[in-house]
């Protein structure tokens, strides 16, 4: 008889554990299937010179970052200063993809706030976005010397992520 009274308590505890696990998961954190795979070819018109193409093949043999941004994305404004910092102080090679944006607004943004990119591809129709499996901005990819995607960071880049994940990884990839 005593055991029967414990059944609701048991169910309650089980539910608590399950819901607890559910709450700590982040449904936005979609694992990228592209990690460890060859990066898709990036071929987009240059934001500043639309008749020139930005081609990722010229970056083979280098470790580089690909950053997806747009002036419509508030988090991109927030991370921009940090991108400027890693580009100028840490010597990071970074290519930007300007996604679904107004070209003039994007150029003005970079002129006013500084341009951390070695090249910016203009992607108003999500061509490269879909190739790279991007679903939000900002997103940052790390590509190694062989052109393989090694990491993807979803959301803005900031100090702790950089120190903990990206910088050590880039250092390791540079040595490879």
């Amino acid at each position: 008889m005593k055991v029967r009274f414990l059944i609701p308590l048991g169910i309650f505890l089980l539910m608590t554990v399950l819901l607890g696990i559910g709450l700590t998961l982040n449904p936005r954190d979609v694992p990228s299937v592209l990690i460890g795979q060859k990066a898709p070819k990036l071929l987009l018109p240059d934001l500043f010179e639309p008749n020139k193409m930005v081609n990722s093949e010229s970056l083979l043999g280098k470790v580089w970052l690909l950053n997806i941004w747009g002036t419509w994305c508030p988090e991109c404004w927030r991370e921009h200063e940090f991108l400027n910092y890693i580009a100028s102080e840490e010597g990071v090679q970074m290519v930007g993809v300007n996604w679904r944006d107004d070209a003039e607004a994007a150029k003005k943004f970079l002129k006013d706030k500084g341009n951390p990119f070695i090249a910016v591809g203009f992607d108003p129709e999500s061509v490269a976005i879909m190739d790279w499996g991007v679903y939000g901005a900002p997103e940052t990819f790390v590509i190694d010397k062989k052109g393989v995607i090694r990491k993807k960071h979803t959301g803005p880049l900031y100090d702790s992520v950089w120190e903990k994940d990206l910088r050590p990884l880039i250092k390791q990839l540079e040595a490879e």
Binding site: R28, R100, E125, S126, M130, Y135, G136
Partner: peptide, 21 residues
């Protein structure tokens, strides 16, 4: 992928529009 409980048909997110296209 933006409105995660919607399918492409129901979603008005820009990425969904591009994926539909």
């Amino acid at each position: 992928l933006v409105c995660q409980n919607n399918n492409l048909a129901d979603s008005n997110a820009e990425l969904a529009q591009d994926m539909r296209r």
